[in-house]
Amino acid sequence: MFSTKLRPAIQRIQQIVPTRWIGSSASEATTVQPAFLFSPENFRRPQLPEGLKVQNLIPEMANDTTLAGLGRLVSNPEDYTVAHKTFEITQWPQPGWRQLDPGTGDEAGTTEGDFEVQWKGDFFYGKNLAIATNNNEYLDGLGAVPEHASSDKVADASHIHLWMSDYHPDGGQLFWPRQPIPFAVCLGPASCGDDITPQDMRAFHVPAGKGIYIHPGTWHNGIYVAPRYTVEAPARFLTRQGRVHARISVSWASEFQTLLRLQLP
């Protein structure tokens, strides 16, 4: 344990430099680089370095067996609503020792709207129109490693390289394609919490005519489609999610010097 004399100094340092400590004592502790800040600017135009490791994920076909613990395959988006008590909204944690009053802390319900995705050369962008924030436009992935990616070309990617993922602690999320097209997702278990690693992530192909519902806390990001589906306009998905829209993210590129690579359906 840290010496009680050191504890105030350590707390002041952690407030200034938000690093994570690993080790059982101050002398043994090593530090991890500060987490990537997912500001609107950084999310749209992250500075991704050259030479990142690439971890290949072999896609599985999404069904209720393969998705167990992560989410569900969706045949009708109206099967997952708060009214039907099938859409999960997580009760807000109690800040002190007093209990939440019954029936409170999970009353915000859901918000919904279109989630647009589009390829621009090797860059795959998403825009979430369901949430009222300016932090709703993202670079979701790349068709090539950063040093070889170009926007001055026809989009022709057969794979996508993912540099980040996130989860929502306040509720689930549903994605339903407005047109029946296949898409891919990349998911990690909520049980990993904030200690998620690239090795915990799995790739899934969702067949045309189906959608996906993701449990609260499941690591994910957006949905990924092949370039042929965004030639004339962005591909649009209905997204339904908790109205609070808390989001906690990991940068695979910054924290693990890694990209997750998966084949597009």
Rank of each mutant, 00 (worst) to 15 (best):
P198T: 08
P177F: 10
V206G: 04
M164Y: 00
L187W: 10
H84N: 14
R247G: 07
I196E: 10
A26H: 12
G23Y: 12
Y224C: 02
Y224S: 01
D79N: 15
Q14K: 13
D156Q: 15
L6P: 00
G103V: 02
W176H: 06
G126I: 00
D200C: 12
Y125L: 03
T31P: 02
A35E: 13
T4S: 13
M201Q: 13
E60F: 09
T19N: 06
V74T: 03
F183R: 09
V154Y: 09
H84Y: 12
M201Y: 04
A26E: 14
S158G: 15
R7E: 14
V54Q: 02
V82T: 15
P189C: 07
H215Y: 15
F43V: 02
E88Y: 07
Y80L: 12
A68H: 14
G209H: 04
T19C: 11
L100A: 13
G23M: 05
I214K: 06
V244Q: 13
V145H: 05
A35H: 11
A108S: 11
L52W: 06
M201G: 01
V225M: 09
Q91V: 01
A155E: 14
P227W: 08
E78R: 15
P189Q: 03
E255A: 15
H205R: 01
I160Y: 06
T258R: 10
Q55A: 09
H168Q: 05
